[in-house]
Amino acid sequence: MKKVLLSVALLAGTVAVANAQTTTRFGVKAGVNYTTFSGDGVENAKYKFGAVGGLAANFGFSESLSLQTELLYSQKGAEIKGTDFNFKLNYIELPIMFRYTLSDGKGPFLQAGPQIGYLAKVKLSDGDGNNIDLDNDAYQNIALGYVAAVGYQLPSGLSIEGRFNGDINSVGKDDDVNDQQRNRVFSVQLGYMFGGK
């Protein structure tokens, strides 16, 4: 009898925990980056535009607090002042952000957290659009950074946000090209989470 009561108690506890677990929603994102370099030796670097987009997952702990993770393809880099050279860095990025929505899961929201990126490709092009070969081994494969954003979530699942992200490690490896320069990015992103409220 004790075993039956214990089994029933464990089953009830499991159901209660399952009901208390997070609400998960998935979605897509797309937007535009406005990107350059920060750090030493960036006097000739100016902002350029790039694309950003990918997938998102939101794990809701309550109506207001959630964890948002994303898998993004993000174009970064800079243009060089006084020339037509366009420096392009293409990353696969994984931001992990805590998100606070001010009004029960919809309306204005704030989010912030760390980000890790993998450098997929480095390219340099001239004013005629010709690509100049660069050695990927001269650049850091992994970019560690941070993200902060403010946005607005509609009940339908559509959202818009302004985001800033920066790296804490350099673009280039030590004692190599761009070894004192870090990515700095402002972006505007549209998102859609399926299963809108």
Rank of each mutant, 00 (worst) to 15 (best):
Y34M: 12
F37P: 03
S38Y: 14
S38W: 04
G39Y: 00
D40T: 09
V42D: 08
E43S: 15
E43V: 05
N44P: 07
A45T: 02
Y47S: 03
K48Y: 02
V52C: 07
V52I: 13
G53H: 10
A56C: 11
A56S: 14
N58C: 03
N58I: 08
F59A: 14
S62A: 15
S64P: 09
S64H: 11
L65A: 13
L65Y: 08
S66M: 07
S66P: 04
L71D: 05
L71P: 01
L72Q: 06
Y73D: 04
S74G: 09
S74P: 02
Q75A: 09
Q75P: 05
K76G: 03
G77W: 00
A78L: 01
I80N: 05
I80Y: 04
G82L: 05
F85D: 06
F87A: 07
K88Q: 15
K88S: 14
L89K: 00
L89F: 13
N90Y: 07
N90V: 10
N90L: 10
I92W: 07
I92D: 07
I92K: 03
E93S: 13
P95A: 07
P95R: 03
M97E: 06
R99F: 06
R99N: 12
L102T: 06
S103C: 10
G105D: 09
K106C: 11
P108C: 00
P108W: 11
F109Y: 15
Q111L: 12
A112W: 02
G113Q: 08
I116G: 11
I116L: 15
Y118W: 15
Y118I: 14
L119Y: 10
K121S: 15
K121A: 13
V122W: 04
K123E: 15
K123V: 06
S125C: 11
D126V: 09
G127I: 03
G127T: 06
G127C: 11
G127L: 10
D128S: 15
I132E: 05
I132G: 06
D133S: 14
N136H: 13
D137G: 11
A138T: 10
A138I: 00
Q140P: 00
N141A: 15
N141E: 12
I142R: 08
I142Q: 09
I142A: 12
L144P: 06
L144W: 13
L144T: 10
G145R: 04
G145C: 00
Y146A: 06
V147T: 12
A149M: 05
V150Y: 06
G151Y: 02
G151P: 03
G151F: 01
Y152T: 05
P155F: 09
S156D: 13
L158R: 03
L158A: 14
E161C: 04
G162M: 08
G162H: 01
G162Y: 01
R163D: 00
F164E: 05
F164Y: 15
G166V: 00
G166S: 04
D167P: 01
D167G: 10
D167A: 09
D167L: 02
I168E: 00
I168A: 07
N169Q: 11
S170D: 07
